[in-house]
Nucleic acid binder design. Sequence first.
DNA 1: AATCATATCAACCGCCAGCTT
DNA 2: AAAGCTGGCGGTTGATATGAT
Length: 309
Amino acid sequence: MGRSPRCDKDGLNKGAWTAAEDKILMDYVKLNGEGKWSRLSRETGLRRCGKSCRLRWMNYLRPDIKRGNISPDEEELIIRLHKLLGNRWSLIAGRLPGRTDNEIKNYWNTNLAKKPEASRSVQLHCLQREPTVQPHATSQRELEQERLPESDIRGVANLEPQVAQQNAINGELGPSPDGNALLKRMLSDSDMSDGSLSFNSEEESPDFMIDFNVDDICQILDSDFSKLGTDQNGYVHDGERETKYPSYLNQHLMPPEEAEKHLNDGLHIRDDSVSAFQSLASLFESDDEKWAGGGGTNDANFALPGKNS
DNA sequence: AATCATATCAACCGCCAGCTT
DNA sequence: AAAGCTGGCGGTTGATATGAT
């Protein structure tokens, strides 16, 4: 039970699609929209199973698809996201407009998987660990040896974390470059072998990221970062889809009575979580305009602290 | 020019979750 | 509650293209 019918039953076609089949599929989707793939074959006489139709549409016929020529920026994002998410190709593809999960999976397997991890990481702008660290330190001594230099942890500006965070909140450093570098570093060093992120030391994992579960990250990635903004008081909210955030984030939200002091609506993130949250967002949204402008929210109050004040 | 090796990528397969009956 | 159906996902395959000898 529960299994979809096999495509090879009842003489359904397999293999490469013909131009005529493509046309039937495109015409049907134009008329009826996506979905209902099984109805498609029944109603059009196309001798393809629903799954095959869906795959052909999603990976090849969709009008907004970009094919080939993965740019260096896209490659870097793929590497970052794969570091963060593993082989969750559909989620990765969701962050690369016009790219399909199949294409990214193929690209990874043919181009990136073959490269040694070190040569992949060197393409990231984030810091490189030195010396090379064994993936699983077991003893306290080994853990101590793996710790990053204090200056490294605090980022390029060599600030005390609290100072860097406060600067970010106050708008003195823009989109929290220190937190960003730190987060990238954490993602580079994180161990996801058990399905969750873990860090080499508490110093590397601010409260925001401790026990950060991959599934939570996946849900956050499903949010639209272009909608994120920070109001003039320095509180982060998305203005549109606050309910989209996972319950996990609740612990990072201000209590309602506190939030009310600042705005009547929106998502309010605790002062001590703002920097890390911005860092996570800026990993995937490097376009400052989207931060500064609210990405289409046309809310004049949406601006990164310091960007317009 | 012929053959073999390797790379690429479209498509298939099996599993699963969620929905409907 | 159980069975059946569908869509979605990641892993894998195999036909084709390209490069090397």
